[in-house]
Amino acid sequence: MLLNEIESLSLSGEQTVEAAAMWLAKRAKPGAIVVIKRGGDGASAWRDGEVTHVPAPAVAVIDTTGAGDTFNAGYLGALLDGATLEDALRAGVAVASAAIASSPRRYVSLDVALR
């Protein structure tokens, strides 16, 4: 499940991202991953009681249009390539961070994102 902070709070009715993630995780299938994209704070994931957080680098933001979709592409691409949960989050954050800090858009490859 890939949601942003506002979506996770709205869907769950909870007041914090952590509480929202627990609410969502309880309703997901065993082994499911709940990912919450946190903008400038990076991204966090919950799976079977394990919490993983990757902070976002400080970037000069030019345009955030499509940042969530860009994160999803980097995260899912890395996960499908066999990356750990932490490395997949790191890839998503890196790809989205490069995209929002560029115009015209510039994307980093997964190889670069995972360095």
Rank of each mutant, 00 (worst) to 15 (best):
L76G: 04
D48W: 12
N4L: 07
V108P: 00
V34W: 03
R90I: 03
G49E: 12
R27L: 12
A113I: 06
S8C: 12
S10D: 14
I100D: 10
A88M: 08
G74E: 06
L2Y: 09
G13A: 02
A19M: 11
L9M: 07
V61S: 06
W23P: 05
G31V: 02
L11C: 01
A73E: 03
N4T: 09
W46L: 15
V34K: 01
T65H: 08
G31N: 11
N4K: 07
A96V: 04
V59R: 05
V35W: 00
R38T: 01
L9A: 04
D81T: 03
A99D: 12
H53R: 13
V112C: 03
T65L: 13
E50F: 06
E14H: 01
R106Q: 15
E5C: 02
I62C: 09
T64K: 04
D48N: 15
G39S: 11
G68F: 08
T65D: 04
P57F: 09
G31L: 05
V35D: 00
W23Q: 12
A78Y: 04
A56V: 06
D63H: 09
M22A: 15
A88T: 06
K29A: 14
D87F: 05
A83K: 08
A28Q: 14
P104N: 11
A28N: 06
G39F: 00
A43K: 05
E7G: 08
S109A: 03
P104R: 09
A83Y: 08
R38L: 15
R38F: 04
L114H: 03
R105I: 14
A98S: 15
G40N: 07
G92Y: 01
A32W: 07
V93E: 05
V93A: 02
D69E: 07
V54W: 01
K26Q: 15
V95Y: 04
T16H: 01
S44G: 13
E7N: 04
D48E: 15
V93D: 05
V51A: 12
Y75E: 01
Y107E: 04
A60M: 12
N4R: 07
Y107A: 09
E86S: 14
P104D: 09
I36V: 15
Y75N: 00
E18L: 11
V17I: 14
A58Q: 14
